[in-house]
């Protein structure tokens, strides 16, 4: 068992004929993922990386049994792509596309929730369970099957930390990149219960950043409902207030969502909070060593 994806995951790539769609279809297949279909309106009948392309998600679902979607469709059309996937019965949608207006995302989130579908993202690297499946764009080279769960709001920083875990001789159960936008389909609090229930996850790494209160909410949840050890890192301790640091989410506004409040909350919840990204794998290794049967 892993979290949200496994060997039965069958992926349809929306926007497969675009550059990113094509490149990452190949990468997902190299990871061992069943990429069964692609969708680009008007391109039905062609193939990309050997994957059949359809005009509509419904066609892809009917013909290939696709049950998860990976969306690369450009921002102005991403809302429609998501609504189409949910309407066709897809229940896990990973949205890689960045710069989707949050007003669109509010509608997408409501529609998905009303239909029992889960969105990961937008503006996210996706989800991967080494040895099973990857839906998204996290580089294959950072992974190795193991028992460390990872939830992160960041992209490349996730790669950095996941790679560090591998370099310490450990591996990952499932890694989810939630995305850095103000409105995300899956938050830390949404993802935590899956890792609590997952028998293949022994401990969890949580990578947060300044802005919003998602990490504070996560700390509250961890304190009361999460029994496994947690190692956390919050990026942006040294970021100046009021400056937007790339992610729309990464901004300190009105004294809320500072690194200090997040670190304090996680500390109170019993997490080990690293000061630097390279301390995370060290802390993970220490916890694993302490738990190992002698």
């Amino acid at each position: 068992m892993s979290v949200l994806v496994d060997a039965s995951t069958r992926v349809v790539v929306q926007g497969i004929t675009g550059h990113q769609g094509t490149v990452h279809t190949a990468q997902m297949r190299a990871f061992g993922t069943h990429v069964v279909a692609g969708v680009t309106p008007g391109k039905a009948g062609s193939t990309v990386e050997g994957v059949p392309v359809f005009d509509a998600v419904r066609d892809a679902v009917e013909r290939t049994g696709a049950n998860a979607s990976c969306i690369f469709v450009p921002a102005p059309f991403a809302k429609d792509a998501l609504l189409e996937a949910v309407d066709a019965g897809i229940r896990l949608c990973v949205i890689v596309t960045e710069h989707i207006p949050f007003h669109d995302m509010l509608v997408m989130y409501r529609y998905a929730r009303a239909n029992g579908a889960r969105i990961i993202g937008p503006n996210c690297p996706g989800i991967a369970a080494p040895g099973k499946a990857k839906v998204g764009i996290i580089p294959n080279v950072v992974f190795r099957p193991g028992r460390v769960g990872v939830i992160s709001r960041s992209g490349t920083l996730t790669y950095e930390i996941v790679n560090g875990i591998k370099e310490h001789g450990l591996g990952q159960s499932t890694c989810i990149g939630l995305g850095g936008d103000p409105v995300v389909g899956t938050s830390f609090v949404d993802a935590l219960p899956f890792f609590e229930a997952d028998p293949e996850t022994d401990l969890l790494v949580l990578v947060g950043e300044i802005g919003g209160t998602a990490e504070e909410d996560a700390a509250e949840y961890i304190q009361h409902h999460f029994s496994k050890p947690v190692v956390a890192y919050i990026a942006g301790r040294a970021a100046p207030p009021g400056k937007r640091m790339g992610h729309a989410g990464a901004i300190i506004a009105r004294g809320r969502g500072t690194a200090a409040t997040k670190v304090a909350a996680l500390d109170r919840a019993g997490a080990r909070v690293a000061r630097f990204p390279y301390e995370v794998p060290q802390m993970v290794a220490e916890i694993v060593a302490a738990r190992a049967p002698r």
Partner: peptide
């Protein structure tokens, strides 16, 4: 590249 890694780099340099 990426907001998270950019901010983490800032944190490390300041420290």
């Amino acid at each position: 590249n990426g907001a998270g890694l950019t901010m983490a780099t800032l944190d490390v340099l300041m420290e």
